[in-house]
Amino acid sequence: MTQLVLLLLFDAVLLITLLGLALAAVLSPEPRRAVMLFIAFGLWLALVWARLHAPDVALAEAAIGAGLGGALMLAAARRAARARRQDAEAEP
C-alpha cells in the first residue's frame, strides 16, 4: 500500500516538474535559456517514457529530442544572436 502511494507521489512529482519545465521553456524570453530549458525538458520526458515502460521512445527522446535537437537549436540560437548583433551594428 505504501509502495503504491510512493509511486503515485513519484509520478506526480515527475508530471508537475515536466509541466513546469515546459512552461518555463515556452515563456522564457531569451532563446539560449529557452533551449537549455527545452533540453532539460527532453531529458525529463525521457524519464517519463521510461516510467511508462516505453524504453524505445525514451532512448529516442533522450538521444534525438534532447541531445541532437538541443545541439541544433543551440547552434541556431547562437546564429540568431549573431545576426541580431550584426543588424544592431548596421543600424546606426
Binding site: P55, D56, A58, L59, A60, A63, I64, G67, L68
Partner: peptide, 11 residues
Amino acid sequence: APGGAFQAGAL
C-alpha cells in the same frame, strides 16, 4: 531489444 536505426544514427 529497445534500440534501432534512429537511435544508432543519433549516436
